[in-house]
Design a protein around this nucleic acid. Sequence first.
DNA 1: TTTATAACTTTGTGATACAAAGTTAATTCA
DNA 2: TGAATTAACTTTGTATCACAAAGTTATAAA
Lengths: 98, 98
Amino acid sequence: MIDFDKLDKTIHERGRLSIMTMLVSRGEWKFQELKDQLKMSDGNLITHLRSLQKAGYVSTEKELKGRKVTKYLLTRSGKKAFKGYLRLLEQIVTQGSS
Amino acid sequence: MIDFDKLDKTIHERGRLSIMTMLVSRGEWKFQELKDQLKMSDGNLITHLRSLQKAGYVSTEKELKGRKVTKYLLTRSGKKAFKGYLRLLEQIVTQGSS
DNA sequence: TTTATAACTTTGTGATACAAAGTTAATTCA
DNA sequence: TGAATTAACTTTGTATCACAAAGTTATAAA
């Protein structure tokens, strides 16, 4: 039996899942890029990013030169948590396809 | 890019995802069996089952003889929707593992 | 006919997704 | 220089929803 208690709720929510998937597929994303790709409102996006930061999954880098730009990236812990999440997805896919 | 808009919210929620995964792995489940396996309260379980029924994903069978027992099973449409959902999960897993 | 059980329904609470509008700081342009 | 623009927020309000707990109904066993 799959242990659904282990399903990470922070990652599982659609908005944050899409963010995590982007961050894992490419190292860094600017706030604006995430917003454009994911078509979220500022408020919604920042709130999800804050949840992910609060969970320790995401960190930021500010560009000191030029325009005010914030880049978001996965932490080591974020990568690990996402890997664990993916393992659970795999179990679901496997069980659902058998 | 994965289209997260296509992610079926009815299925994606943890409780209902666990129900759907059970139903696809074995044809029929009694209410009591689901409750025992998933450790949900009556109210929570029935509410999720109702949502799934409302979406047309789940149907019921009542035993006419003996005790009052209700069995739950996937509809054709539920199987199809779940397959679509799994395809999206596969995309996430693939993208996340590359 | 009392008791027990399955399958509900109802109600209340707390969490949260999301949009919209407002704020702040820095940069560019007139 | 200062007005306008832009990025990155914060705040606020709403609507949804997960979940638990307690109450209801119908059936069956004792």
